[in-house]
């Protein structure tokens, strides 16, 4: 009964998905992020990266640290991902589902700035301070078959997400925390992605700095320019 009232007087699933996407990132932004990949109890790799995003259009990512990986660049347009490796001098075209630098994030998890592009809202519910939103992949090209998320009612930032494979099995889970006000809007600045199949390995992402941009040079979002 409560759910029916909630659905009548509150958000629809589509509206909630739209709000989640809107607060995920501004229209255009540049951020500096740190990714720490915990491979085992005594082994971790830390990356520092510069990310430039235009929501629903493209994301450019460049690795700054560690020195061995520095200069590696990634570009996401629609569901297409290119990786430029300076030691090879060429850009390779990859799959959005591949692991990003061996981390628990897929290329799409880290670089995609919109859920609406690949997913449609399937259902919505409400529990205390959270909305429960379920997304279904629009096609087989979607990075996951299904995503469920607990979304904070206060700011529409997801707190916890579960990712399911094409076979319907729970594959990854992510928590989003440390919500901070940046340029007047709230953003989650800490993400932790775990693989439910290998409990000891997980990946943390911290947003070190963040700013919105007025415009982005079109040359940045061209695969043929990655080596430049």
């Amino acid at each position: 009964m409560f759910n029916i009232i909630f659905l009548i007087f509150s958000l629809t699933a589509d509206e909630l998905l739209n709000k989640v996407d809107t607060v995920r990132a501004p229209k255009r932004s540049e951020s500096l992020i740190q990714m720490r990949n915990y491979l085992s109890e005594d082994r971790e790799i830390t990356y520092k990266m510069r990310v430039i995003t235009e929501r629903k259009k493209a994301t450019y990512l460049e690795i700054l640290e560690p020195a061995r990986e520095a200069g590696r660049k990634f570009l996401l347009i629609e569901n297409n991902i290119w990786m430029y490796a300076p030691e090879v001098g060429k850009s390779l075209r990859l799959s959005a589902r591949d692991k990003f630098l061996g981390s628990e994030f897929s290329n799409s998890d880290l670089m995609e700035s919109s859920y609406e592009k690949n997913f449609e809202a399937a259902s919505i519910d409400s529990v205390e301070d959270y909305y429960l939103l379920e997304l279904e992949g629009k096609s087989r090209e979607a990075p996951y078959k299904r995503i469920t998320m607990k979304v904070r009612k206060s700011n529409f930032i997801p707190a916890y997400l579960e990712y399911y494979t094409l076979s319907g099995r729970l594959f990854r889970e992510m928590s989003m925390d440390s919500v901070k006000i940046i340029e007047g809007d709230p953003y989650a600045t800490y993400l932790k992605m775990s693989n439910v199949l290998s409990a000891k390995s997980y990946t943390e992402v911290k947003i070190l700095s963040f700013k919105s941009l007025k415009n982005i040079s079109p040359s940045l979002f061209k695969p043929e320019n990655l080596g430049r």
Partner: peptide, 10 residues
């Protein structure tokens, strides 16, 4: 032709 297997980037 080439085939490559990598583990955790290490």
């Amino acid at each position: 032709s080439m085939v490559q297997w990598t583990k955790d980037k290490t």
